[in-house]
């Protein structure tokens, strides 16, 4: 059985931004893959607007942890709460819209960038209407010209697709963003733009984020707190 322990470092940052946003807590979460325990006793409390970095060696279960925080898989133990409410109380689709996972590999559907950005607003759990002005503002902040809204999504580079996926998530105004290596396919300029935008959204909208990164310098620079997953036995996973 392979397990990983966790340590949290960094100042216990006070909530940033305005008031009534939700606190996200993970209490003693354990994650298993194919019956093998990969992570256990993962606990943290994320205040509105706070950025938490999850670091750790490759294969230690960072992605699986994000998947369980997003409710795509069931943790084998522990409890998630958003503002004191369990996901089942909120309803899973509504929970996922508010605690929104952005995969490392960009996933876009065939069609234009606009089609992709508008798509989640068709779901019943969508809480706000489609906002084109916000879409173009976010795209431009991430160095994608607004005129490209009508361009086919599959004509973009992987780095551009990764940024479009991030814009799609931001437009839904989640309480918590779960970002899996969000700058892995980006050059330095684009990476800085993403970091700045997420920080700005954290300040202005109190959107918190859990950010998986293998880059210790980025975690240090970008986030308020860090959760380091340490392998304790020769496990593998993800």
């Amino acid at each position: 059985m392979s397990q990983h322990s966790s340590t949290i470092t960094g100042p216990s940052a006070p909530p940033r931004g305005g008031g009534d946003m939700a606190t996200f807590t993970a209490d003693a979460i354990a994650v298993a893959v194919d019956g093998q325990l990969l992570l256990e006793d993962i606990s943290f409390r994320l205040e509105p607007g706070q950025l938490l970095a999850i670091t750790g060696p490759s294969g230690c279960g960072k992605t699986m942890l994000l998947r369980s925080l997003a409710g795509l898989i069931d943790p084998v133990a522990g409890q998630l709460r958003l503002n004191g409410e369990a996901p089942q109380q909120l309803g899973w689709p509504a929970y996922r819209r508010r605690v929104l996972l952005v995969h490392q590999q960009p996933v876009l559907t065939p069609g234009t960038i606009r089609d992709n950005l508008e798509r989640p607003f068709r779901y019943r759990a969508a809480a706000s209407p489609w906002n084109e002005a916000a879409a173009t503002r976010f795209l431009e902040r991430l160095h994608i010209e607004a005129e490209r809204l009508e361009q086919r999504a599959d004509s973009l580079s992987v780095g551009q697709q990764q940024r479009v996926c991030l814009v799609r998530a931001l437009l839904l105004q989640p309480d918590v963003l779960l970002l899996d290596e969000p700058t892995s396919a980006l050059d330095e300029t684009a990476r800085d733009a993403v970091e700045a935008l997420i920080r700005e959204v954290a300040l202005e909208r109190s959107t918190a984020a859990v950010i998986v990164t293998h880059d210790a310098a980025q975690a240090e620079r970008w986030c308020d707190v860090q959760l380091a997953l340490q392998p304790t036995a020769g496990g593998n996973g993800q």
């Binding site: 997003a70 795509l72 689709p93 509504a94 996922r96 819209r97 929104l100 996972l101 952005v102 995969h103 590999q105 996933v107 559907t109 798509r119 989640p120 068709r122 779901y123 019943r124 759990a125 969508a126 799609r168 998530a169 839904l172």
Partner: peptide, 20 residues
């Protein structure tokens, strides 16, 4: 699977994600 899970992560119900 990733395509379906992308829809789920954006708040789609299982039927909304399965529709396409």
């Amino acid at each position: 699977r990733q395509q379906v899970e992308m829809e789920l992560t954006h708040g789609a119900t299982r039927w909304e994600a399965a529709r396409a």
